[in-house]
Design a protein around this nucleic acid. Structure first.
Length: 209
DNA sequence: GTTCTAGAAC
DNA sequence: GTTCTAGAAC
């Protein structure tokens, strides 16, 4: 009888332990996305260019016809960790970004950083200005690239040159940028929703000869 | 960052 | 009824 009770308790504690383990792993998995760029950096499918200081990759979910990321090999978490010591690195990242842009001369490119990035590891966006991509789905996507939430690489460099660090915008300003009405980046068209904006921007694509 | 989906908007 | 957005995800 007592053996049975012991077995029962043992089973219960095992079950409990498994549930705890499951919860722990689920939590880990749920938070792991913010480290996604680290695995992308190591993915040969995405690699565009590499040297001793940086890695350039294709964005896994491109928000335009061309969308690359330039990341330092040094583990710099975000713009908040950038100091004057990183000036040469920032300039090098910018140069690599410009070279990537120049290798696709039929498109115009924007080079810049998101004022507040979701993913860990500093990354410079090198993105063509068509924004015609199935991966660009939400108002947030749109406004992170077409409002001043997108900070030009040149501006970041001059801020670090002048102040030794990046000047940050407030949470209120970030919210203001995210709440900006859906406006075409090439004309005054105001869209009532994402599908209408996505079909509108097609008129600005360069015509094929 | 993406996926999923409830319920708002139409 | 369908389309679309916004918030949770353990």
């Amino acid at each position: 009888m007592s053996t049975l009770i012991c077995r029962c308790y043992y089973k219960m504690s095992c079950k409990r332990r498994n549930e705890d383990e499951q919860k722990k792993y689920a939590k880990k998995a749920a938070n792991f996305w913010s480290m996604g760029l680290l695995s992308s950096m190591k993915d040969p499918e995405l690699l565009m260019k590499e040297d001793d200081k940086i890695v350039a990759i294709k964005d896994k979910y491109p928000k335009a016809h061309y969308h690359f990321l330039v990341l330092p090999k040094e583990n710099i978490c975000s713009l908040a960790k950038v100091t004057k010591d990183h000036l040469q690195l920032l300039k090098h990242m910018d140069k690599v970004g410009q070279e990537l842009a120049e290798s696709h001369p039929t498109s115009n490119f924007k080079l810049g950083y998101h004022a507040e990035a979701s993913m860990s590891r500093l990354h410079l966006h090198v993105v063509s200005d068509d924004f015609n991509s199935t991966c660009l789905k939400t108002k947030k996507h749109w406004n992170t690239f077409t409002t001043d939430f997108f900070v030009p690489s040149s501006k970041i460099i001059s801020e670090v040159e002048k102040h030794g660090e990046v000047i940050f915008i407030t949470k209120d300003e970030i919210k203001k940028f995210m709440d900006t009405p859906l406006k075409c980046h090439k004309c005054n068209f105001l869209a009532k929703n994402m599908p209408s904006l996505k079909s509108h921007i097609l008129i600005h694509l360069k015509k094929l000869l």
